[in-house]
Design a protein around this nucleic acid. Structure first.
Lengths: 244, 244
DNA sequence: ATGCTAATTTTGTTTGAACATTTGAACCAT
DNA sequence: ATGGTTCAAATGTTCAAACAAAATTAGCAT
């Protein structure tokens, strides 16, 4: 592998090194607990000073991607420790971060009359048609989440979009609608017959139910989302900060 | 205000400066959009090199407490800008918001040897004694959550505190320890014999398990918290904002 | 073998210096 | 006034060097 940096480039060396290291630690040769070359050598190899190298590693250390230990060396943080504050990860991003390849097991698009709950949230009249998207998704070992999404008519979805692609991509690229704020509710429920069958569980098994209300930058409702996660396979991770 | 630092102390200068700056920016004189003294002057005034000062400001900048602008100066981030994430409600606050009066059904305090998991999180040696707090709490209709908390020895709890009062009150008032950041994991599990008995459910019933890692403003671990919520009665609510 | 000691390796801390880049203000010519 | 240039101030980048502190390793004495 030939990780090198460009001294004549206009972008700062420590930024180049930072990006380079981000690639490095994704590389199986270094990933997950492996040692990085020691600072003095690595700096020499890259043709930069140790300080500049540390400028980059400092940032990655803050983010929790690297763990340094005095007298020992620098290792790539194990995944469990990881999970840095991504402000609001979409499902695809969440899974990618965990190194899980997403498989769509089922995908169903339909137009449905808004019931009271949805009409209230969307602030539209009851009975108006809204797009409903149902997806059974999971990893190589089988499905582990059943999604139901309703979209506000305003976003202009036709139902003919390619929903195998990440949702945020469809919304942002094709419709310039940017989700901004979400409100969530999470509870534990027992699987009913339907969900048990979809997720490969027994009725009564624990399921994580996540309701998500999504708003655009103008605080207008754009999506109502329900997710049913297999209790044994999904870990929902949150990182939050307290107001002073 | 005579902010000074101790050159003979064993704790690194840049850490002292970092803490000093944290106080500074809470000071009304600097808080909220005010300019910090320029780097060269401030370094000189503190009797340290500019690099050491930047080591501290870098961290605060990364945390979003300071905003630096080339050619202009460094200002304290305004709170509105800094509200990058939601407030972080404690259990008491959550319940109060829902209009539920909290009742402590059981309360048990003990000292326990830290196992590997806890020792790792607290960054202490395995087997060291830590305070363990177990609480069965709920509303008028019965208990609906079982809490287990472990506290870092640093916070200095004796075990004789009045734990019927809100935790954050005990920590902030008596020990000036302010929780700042938390990491959470939520999964759905089936109730075991013990939890079913405590929460008045049947074994196998769905339970929401919440792991919470709590850090102080210096990112030092202070509490490890486990919460087991009755699936049918508790709603966990989250509000988050997306970075643009 | 066991346990202590010393050497080595590696990251941590700190300083000083030089130059680049960006911003804003002062100044000047039209 | 307007526009452009210059200058000063502030942060940004980068290097070289020295010593401190912690962890591991090697070696030595018992």
């Amino acid at each position: 592998m030939n990780y090198t940096i460009d001294h004549s480039s206009s972008i700062p060396l420590h930024v180049q090194v930072e990006n380079l290291l981000r690639e490095m630690i994704r590389d199986p040769e270094f990933a997950n607990g492996k040692f990085l070359p020691n600072e003095v050598d690595l700096a020499k190899r890259l043709g930069i000073s140790r300080n500049t190298l540390r400028q980059a590693t400092n940032k990655l250390t803050y983010e929790g991607l690297l763990v340094r230990k005095k007298g020992v060396g620098t290792i790539v943080a194990t995944k469990s420790v990881n999970t840095r504050l991504m402000n609001w990860p979409s499902f695809s991003q969440e899974m990618k971060a965990l190194g899980i390849k997403i498989i769509n097991y089922e995908l169903h698009v339909s137009w449905e009359q808004a019931d009271k709950k949805i009409a209230d949230f969307f602030r539209i009249s009851e009975g108006k048609k809204v797009l409903k998207l149902e997806r059974l998704r999971g990893g190589p070992d089988g499905p582990f989440v059943y999604f139901i999404s309703y979209f506000h008519p305003r976003v202009g979805l036709t139902g003919n979009e390619d929903f195998s692609k990440p949702l945020y991509e469809i919304l942002e690229k094709n419709y310039a609608t940017i989700a901004q704020l979400s409100k969530e509710e999470i509870i534990a429920i027992a699987a009913n017959e339907f969900l048990a069958q979809k997720l490969g569980m027994k009725p009564g098994d624990p399921i994580l139910k996540r309701k998500r209300y999504v708003f655009d930058p103008g605080s207008r409702p754009i999506e109502y989302n329900l997710g049913f996660y297999r209790g044994d396979s999904f870990v929902y991770t949150i990182e939050s900060e307290r107001k002073l």
